[in-house]
Simulated assay, not measured.
Amino acid sequence: MITLLRRATAVCALSTALAACGAGRPPQPPSPPVSAPPSRPPTLAPGPTGLTPVFEHGPRTRGRTVALTFDADMTAGQGARAAAGERFDHPRLISTLRALQVPATVFMTGRWAEQYPDQARSIGRDPLFEVANHSYSHYAYTPDCYGLPTVPEKRMRSDVERAYAALRKAGVTDPMPYFRFPGGCYDRRALKALTPAGVTAVQWDVVGGDAFETDPEVVARQVLDGVRPGSVVVLHCTRSAAPATERAVRSIVPGLRREGFRFVKVSELIGAAGSGARTRPEGR
Rank of each mutant, 00 (worst) to 15 (best):
D118P: 09
V206F: 05
A23G: 10
S39M: 14
C185N: 06
A80P: 15
C12A: 15
T61E: 06
S39V: 15
R247Y: 11
D205R: 02
G171A: 01
D205C: 01
M74I: 10
Q203R: 04
R257P: 00
R7S: 07
R64F: 07
F129Y: 04
S158A: 04
P149D: 04
C145Y: 04
P196R: 10
G226T: 01
G63A: 10
Y141Q: 11
P117H: 03
K192V: 08
A80Y: 15
V102M: 00
T279E: 09
A170E: 03
G50W: 01
P143Y: 12
P37A: 15
S275G: 13
A193T: 13
V202P: 10
P38K: 07
A113I: 03
V11C: 11
P30R: 05
D225C: 00
S231R: 02
A244G: 10
H57Y: 13
A273T: 12
I123F: 01
R228D: 05
N133T: 06
R188M: 06
P196F: 11
P143R: 15
R180F: 01
G110P: 05
T61H: 14
V172F: 07
P59E: 05
S240G: 03
Y141F: 14
A82C: 12
I252G: 00
E268K: 14
V34K: 09
R258L: 09
L194K: 04
H90K: 08
T69Q: 05
E130S: 11
A99R: 06
G283L: 01
E259P: 05
Q222H: 13
V253K: 00
M156D: 07
L235W: 07
Y136P: 06
L224I: 07
R92K: 11
T150M: 03
S15Q: 10
V11T: 14
F129E: 05
T96Q: 04
Y141M: 06
E213W: 02
V11W: 10
V223T: 07
P175M: 09
G58Q: 08
T9C: 15
P41N: 00
F107R: 04
V34G: 12
A241L: 11
T43N: 12
R262W: 15
E56S: 03
V218H: 09
P177T: 04
T75C: 07
R280N: 06
G283I: 01
R157T: 09
S251W: 02
S31G: 08
R250C: 02
E114I: 04
G230L: 01
P46M: 03
M176Y: 05
V249M: 04
K265Y: 03
S39T: 15
I94H: 08
S158I: 08
R155T: 14
E161K: 08
E268L: 13
Q115D: 09
R87E: 13
A104G: 05
R40Q: 13
A23L: 10
F261P: 01
G183C: 08
D187N: 14
S15F: 14
T105C: 02
L51M: 12
I252H: 00
S39I: 14
Y178A: 02
A113G: 03
R280T: 03
H134T: 05
M156G: 09
A120I: 08
R280Q: 15
R60D: 07
P127Q: 13
S35K: 13
R81P: 10
G22K: 11
A45T: 09
M176V: 02
T49Q: 12
V160W: 07
R40L: 12
